[in-house]
């Protein structure tokens, strides 16, 4: 009886959730036609890029529990692959984006391999080192990346002869990419694979003893995350049309990690809100002039002091539920 009621309750919230999501989608489709200034559209597009970056890192750090400080590396690989392929071989955005994402995924796979042996701070250092290696390769491999000269004049994306290099074009492109990322990550997290990720995060040893191939899943997490980061990088390259190694420093990794932590580790809506806040805050605070970065830091500190689990930190409740479940099981076992 009780369980049926619970189910009913769950259904009604699920339904209202669906309605809200549908309304949100309908509203967001209207955005480019609301006569907003180009600046607002640009901010929304930047938020979109960081939603993809944040969500992909969240998969590794928030769900699989592996601290990565090198996410900007995959972002850079995607951006550079896309830029080089489109400027030298004149490939279209859809091919370069796919190639960029796949190459980033390949490097994610390679970086995932050492994680077999490392965890915690040691893993963080490896990813940090990887990020620096990518940046320095981009800086010094002149023949391929033009080094510090950067790659200017990356063409705007187009599809079937339709130029997407307009505000509306870019908006819908990033909209589709971000939506695809959200849906994919949501599906992954709520699947068997996602459960395995969470199990690894909560207790790797226990997960292993339950028969989860932790190695495989950790590498998988890195590969998927790198794929989406590479996709974001491709879009960024075609959007800003100029990239150089300075755009992909360690600071970029920290920015992405801040989005994940501020929004809440292991929370998809949290990451979206985190991206919204961290990307737009510097622009909101512009009126403070010299003090704006101080305020930006202060906002972050206050946020983390009042809500250390992040704005939508879901991990804690989940742990609680898990604990409850496990205690029930152990009680039963006692009987």
């Amino acid at each position: 009886m009780k369980t049926a009621l619970d189910n009913l309750k769950g259904k009604s919230t699920k339904n209202s959730l669906k309605i809200i999501i549908i309304i949100a989608i309908a509203l967001s489709l209207l955005v480019p036609f609301l006569n907003l200034s180009s600046f607002v559209i640009r901010m929304i597009i930047m938020v979109g890029i960081y939603i993809i970056l944040g969500l992909s890192l969240n998969l590794v750090t928030g769900f699989a529990g592996q601290l990565s400080l090198g996410h900007a590396a995959f972002y850079a690989i995607g951006a550079y692959t896309s830029a080089i392929l489109s400027t030298r071989f004149e490939m279209s955005f859809f091919i370069t984006a796919l190639m960029g994402a796949l190459l980033a995924a390949f490097f994610g796979f390679l970086l995932g391999l050492p994680t077999l042996k490392l965890e915690g701070a040691y893993l963080a250092i490896v990813t940090l080192g990887f990020c620096e290696i990518v940046r320095i390769v981009a800086l010094n491999w002149m023949g391929l990346t033009r080094g510090p000269m950067g790659i200017p004049g990356i063409p705007a994306p187009s599809i079937f002869g339709i130029d997407l290099g307009t505000e509306v074009g870019y908006y819908f492109l990033i909209y589709i990419l971000a939506a695809a990322t959200i849906i994919t990550i949501y599906r992954i997290v709520n699947s068997r694979v996602g459960r395995a990720f969470i199990a690894i995060r909560e207790d790797e040893l226990a997960a292993q003893s339950m028969g989860i191939n932790t190695t495989m899943y950790k590498v998988l997490a890195f590969t998927i995350a790198a794929f989406f980061a590479g996709l974001a990088g491709s879009f960024y390259a075609h959007y800003v049309t100029y990239i150089d190694p300075q755009s992909f420093t360690f600071d970029e990794s920290i920015q992405i990690l801040s989005i994940v932590i501020l929004g809440g580790m292991g929370s998809i809506p949290g990451t979206i809100i985190g991206a919204l806040i961290l990307v737009t805050a510097p622009e909101f605070l512009r009126s403070l002039q010299d003090y704006r970065m101080v305020m930006y830091g202060a906002v972050l500190i206050i946020m983390m002091l009042t809500r250390p689990q992040g704005i939508m930190g879901a991990s804690k409740t989940k742990i609680k539920r898990n604990k409850l479940a496990s205690s029930k099981i152990s009680n039963k076992g006692g009987e």
Binding site: L36, S37, F39, V40, M43, L276, T280, E283, F284, S287
Partner: peptide
Amino acid sequence: LIFTGCTDTG
């Protein structure tokens, strides 16, 4: 807030 804020500053 974001939308109103952005347009306001503009």
